[in-house]
Amino acid sequence: MGLIERFRLRQAGRRYAQRLQTALVIGYGASPFYTAGQIDAAVRRQKLQVSFVWLGYAAFLTEPDFDAATQGMVLPLTYEQVRTFLENFRASSLASSRWETTVTNSDWMNYEGNP
């Protein structure tokens, strides 16, 4: 992976980590996992780069579902590598120690930055 590709991946990773979980919680309620369709819809609503949707799949699908959703895609990272990569970019205001920990709707309503 070249310098430009790494730069684009870091940009996309930051955006996915900071926006996608909040969009999923608001749209579908708190859950440790979501469907590929829910992730696709949230990615479109947040205007995230669709070519990096596999980042969202790794964050919010189980590993078998991730494998099924990304079948045929050439990915630069494994499921666990993507999850670790995204954890580095989590928004500190909604962050927890693991992706599996969810933000509840009441947490979102009490969040200081909530518009």
Rank of each mutant, 00 (worst) to 15 (best):
Tyr111Glu: 12
Met109Ile: 11
Phe52Cys: 01
Arg45Asp: 12
Phe7Lys: 11
Leu77Lys: 11
Arg44Glu: 14
Glu5Val: 07
Asn105Lys: 14
Ala58Ser: 06
Ala58Arg: 00
Arg6Trp: 05
Thr78Asp: 12
Glu80Cys: 01
Thr70Met: 14
Ser92Gly: 14
Asp40Phe: 04
Tyr79Asn: 02
Trp108Phe: 14
Gln21Ile: 03
Thr102Asp: 13
Thr104His: 10
Trp99Pro: 02
Leu3Ala: 11
Arg83Cys: 04
Leu77Asn: 03
Phe52Gly: 00
Gly27Pro: 07
Gln49Thr: 03
Thr22Ala: 14
Ala59Trp: 00
Arg8Trp: 14
Phe52His: 09
Gly72Ala: 10
Glu5Pro: 05
Leu3Phe: 04
Leu86Asp: 01
Phe7Arg: 10
Gly2Phe: 06
Thr35Gly: 07
Asp67Tyr: 02
Ala95Lys: 13
Gln21His: 15
Tyr79Ile: 01
Val53Trp: 00
Ala68Phe: 10
Arg19Thr: 09
Pro32Ser: 15
Gln71Ser: 11
Tyr111Thr: 08
Asn88Met: 08
Thr62Lys: 06
Phe52Pro: 00
Glu63Cys: 01
Arg6Leu: 15
Ser51Tyr: 08
Thr84Phe: 07
Gln71Trp: 08
Leu55Gly: 00
Gly113Ser: 12
Ala95Thr: 06
Thr84Asn: 06
Leu55Phe: 05
Asn114Cys: 09
Thr101His: 11
Arg15Asn: 14
Pro64Val: 02
Gln81Gly: 03
Gly29Lys: 09
Gly13Asp: 08
Arg19Lys: 15
Ile26Pro: 01
Leu20Ser: 02
Ala23Phe: 03
Ser93Cys: 13
Thr101Tyr: 15
Thr22Tyr: 13
Ser93Pro: 07
Asp65Ser: 06
Lys47Gln: 12
Asp40His: 10
Glu63Arg: 06
Arg98Ser: 08
Phe60Leu: 00
Asn105Val: 14
Gly113Pro: 07
Leu20Tyr: 03
